[in-house]
Structures are given as structure tokens and as C-alpha cells.
Design a protein around this nucleic acid. Structure first.
Lengths: 243, 243
DNA sequence: AGTTATTTAATTGTCTGGCATTTAAATGGC
DNA sequence: GCCATTTAAATGCCAGACAATTAAATAACT
């Protein structure tokens, strides 16, 4: 392994890329131990701090994990869906907040993706998924619930719907879309009347899912999308008038 | 800012988290300059190498960029969709290869998501999107094309379809699903007959898109999914018999 | 005065060397 | 054979230094 010291990229970035490529290509496999930091600095002909910076880059992407002690070192990490979730959500959240994506666009994407899960979920959802959704509906109808808690429950409800499709890849992809919307949703203050309407649609959704009725689920989601969008629009309108 | 030296997490990880949280919460805004490494090491009461490791972690997630020189430093990076794409693809690819996701599951997720874009794309696709797709179809019918090139063209074709929906959030979410499939698709060797069938379905898809016919697009995608799945199944079958 | 060349200061990038901490294995005593 | 101790290997962290880069301040020259 050799590194070009005349490249405009950092040495640590080059080394990280070199190792990352080896992981992606399959040259390094899960749980395999990388050479020690001292050995790596020999191989790449750089100092140990530089190697360490490279390893931290990889650790930030959950590509490796490190362990101290005699048999320690850096190991290729088995990237799990559970680990990838938060990163996906963080990235999606920042993308939305930094790129001035309109509420409509984000909402459209979210419901478009979610509706695609409806047929599968209507087919495969288990009793557990249904129970989770009913429980969240119940929580949502509690009076003293804060807006944040209401939104969190909303996320949990929709996640159960998505998970009902029984496809982990789908769940992963949807996590970003659904959870990243939460900060945006939190900006909307839900009145008691709005909550009742949302709960009504959630109940219709759960009923349809219980009856394995894909069309009904889809209709409920469409209803939610249009209601949410209109709600957001009127909230924005009010704010503009006040200011 | 204070860091707990007794936590089981690395100091650099804690510092990175502290800064990352400040970015997510909006305390640090785009293009804002972080304190210099020397100042940060004072503030967090750690050494400069430790601060640097923290900054490299953030750089690995494209959350900051650094610049050398008198007015240099670390700046909060505006995370763009373009930057986020490759990371999303890398993560999706590794998730598939490390978690023994079956071809069927991955394929189902990919086409489920893609079909959800069909109605929007049939409504909004521009002439450009259509031209890209026609061009890719033409490339796919070239005789001497390698399997890799054929798959790459396939990806470009489907990406044009997704982009046609005119929703950047949707395009971003789909990028992972579509592109991460490519390595799996590459494992299938396409015979001339298979390619002809795929091109036929692509043509039908483009025709339906040109006619703003959402149902037609959806049908073509459904056809592609079942054809691809069956193809993969028979390839796996043959391999098993040989071995 | 205006323009160009030079110096200076600030900052990141990298290296050397070292010590602290953690962990498992080797060693030794019973 | 079992338990306590030592040892060695590895990561985690630090101090200090120098190199490279960059922009601004300064000086020199026309």
C-alpha cells in the first residue's frame, strides 16, 4: 500500500479511502483485524497520529470498531441496520434543514415512500405491529400530551406501519424519510381539533391494516398527507400575517 | 464546553458528538468558522491531536470542511444532496453485503420504492429525462457491452426515471436503493436474450412515461421486477446444480 | 500615489517521542 | 490444578516541534 504525498488530499483521508475501498471490495471482511497502528504507520509510511486520524474517519462511519488491550486493535465492523439508522436520520435531517427544502417537498417524499409500503404491510403485518399502532393511537389521544411527544408517537406509529412490510431494507430507507420529518412537524402546533382528525385517520389506517385492506391503508395515508400539508400551509399563512 | 474524562467513550468521540449536536440543533450554522484547533483544545481541555481526531470524525461525515492558511480553519459545511449521495450509496451497499440480505428482499425494496415514483414522474418528467432514458436504452442495445457497463447504464436509466419525479428528497432516498443493487445485479450474467427482454421493458417504460401514463410505467416496473427476480432465481439454481 | 515584492502571522498538516490505560496471555506460587 | 502476579501488546492521550499554506501587513520601487 502506498500513498501519494503530493496529492491535494490529506494523508489521513487517502489512507481512510484506501481501507474503505478494501472493505467495500471485500478484501477486508467482517471481524477481520487491521494491522496495529504502529504497523499501519510503517506500511503507509506515515506517523501514528496520521494513521489514527484515518481510523477515526472510518470509525465515524461505523466501518471499524477498536478495542484496547493485548488482543485489541481495529476490527472491520459488521454494519448493522440498527447502527445505520441514526446516521441515515442525522444526514436526512441536516439535508432538509440546510437545503431549504419546502415542507411540501419533504412531505410529498415522505408520504410517497410510505404509501409504497402499504400493500406489503397490509399483506404481512403481524399482530405485534397492529398492537403497537393501537397503543400509539391511544397515547395520541391522551389530553396532556406535548406537541413533541405527539410527534414522537406519530413517528412510532408510522414506523410500525413500515416495519409491517417485513422488509428490513425498506424499513431502513424509510427511517430517514419519516424521522427526518419530525423536526419539521414539530414546528406545527397541533390544536385539539387537529389531533382528533389525525387520530381519526390513524384509526382508519389501523382498521384497514387489520382487515388486510391495502387500498384502505393507501387512502388513509393520502388523507393524512393532504391534511398535514394543508395544516402546514395555514400555519405558515398565519405566521406571515402576524409578522 | 466540558467533557467527561470518565466516560467510556473516547474523548475525540465525545468532542465530535458535542460539535455535531450543536450543528444539528442549529447553534452552529453553515459556513460558520469553528475555533482554531488550539482554541478548541483549550476549551475542551484536551490536546490538539485529540481535537484533530474529533474534527476528522466530523469531516468523514461531511459536516465540516477545513482550510489551511491565515484565515483558514474548520467551517460548518453545507451538506448538499450531491455530497450525501455517495455516502448513502456506500452505506446501503455495505448493509446489503454484510447482512446477508436476499436478492429477493433487496429487489422487492428497490422496485417498491421505485414504483412509488412512477405517478409523479409520469406527471412531471421533462424532455431531458426522457432523452436520457432513450439514450441509455440505445447504449444497452449495443452488442459489445460488458455486463458492468450494461448494469451502469441500467442504473442511469432508472435514476433518470426517479429524477423525473422532480423531488430531490425522493431522488436522494432512492439513490441508495437503486445504486446499491448494482453489485448484486452484476453477479447475474445477462445473456443476449435477457438483455433484449430488459430493453423491451425499458422501452415500454419510456413510452408510457412519454405518454404521461402512470399505470403503464408501473406495469413496466412490475414486469422488470418479476423478470429480474426470476432471472436471479434461475442463475442461483444453475450455480447450485454445478456445485 | 499606485503597484509589486517581501515579510509576517495565523492556521492546518505532520512527525517524534513519550506516558497512561486496558486487556489477555504467560508466568509463578501454592 | 487453581489462583495471583507479572508481562507484553495494543489503543488512548499528551507535549512540543516543524513544515506548508494562505492572507494580510509591510516595504520597496516606480
Amino acid at each position: 500500500m502506498k500513498i501519494d504525498p503530493n496529492s491535494n488530499a490529506d494523508l489521513s483521508a487517502q489512507i481512510a479511502k484506501s481501507i474503505r475501498d478494501a472493505i467495500i471490495s471485500g478484501d477486508l471482511i467482517v471481524d477481520q483485524r487491521l494491522p496495529s497502528e504502529a504497523e499501519l504507520s510503517d506500511q503507509f509510511d506515515v506517523s501514528r497520529p496520521t494513521v489514527r486520524e484515518a481510523l477515526k474517519r472510518l470509525a465515524a462511519q461505523s466501518l471499524i470498531r477498536t478495542q484496547r488491550g493485548a488482543t485489541g486493535g481495529a476490527f472491520i465492523n459488521k454494519l448493522s441496520f440498527e447502527e445505520a439508522y441514526p446516521q441515515q436520520i442525522t444526514t436526512s435531517t441536516l439535508l432538509l434543514s440546510m437545503n431549504a427544502v419546502s415542507f411540501e417537498t419533504a412531505c410529498e417524499a415522505r408520504y410517497t415512500l410510505e404509501r409504497s409500503c402499504a400493500p406489503l404491510s397490509a399483506m404481512r403485518r403481524t399482530a405485534d405491529h397492529l398492537a403497537t399502532m393501537r397503543a400509539e393511537i391511544h397515547r395520541q389521544s391522551q389530553p396532556g400530551l406535548t406537541d413533541e411527544a405527539f410527534c414522537a408517537s406519530d413517528v412510532a406509529f408510522h414506523r410500525a406501519l413500515v416495519d409491517g412490510a417485513g422488509n428490513p431494507v425498506l424499513s431502513y430507507q424509510l427511517a430517514g424519510a419519516v424521522e427526518a420529518m419530525q423536526p419539521l412537524m414539530n414546528m406545527i402546533t397541533f390544536s385539539a381539533r387537529d389531533r382528533a382528525k389525525i387520530i381519526e385517520l390513524h384509526t382508519a389506517l389501523a382498521d384497514a391494516l387489520e382487515a388486510n385492506n391495502a387500498t384502505g391503508v393507501d387512502a388513509a395515508l393520502a388523507g393524512l398527507e393532504s391534511y398535514t400539508t394543508n395544516l402546514a400551509k395555514s400555519v405558515m399563512e398565519k405566521r406571515k400575517n402576524k409578522a
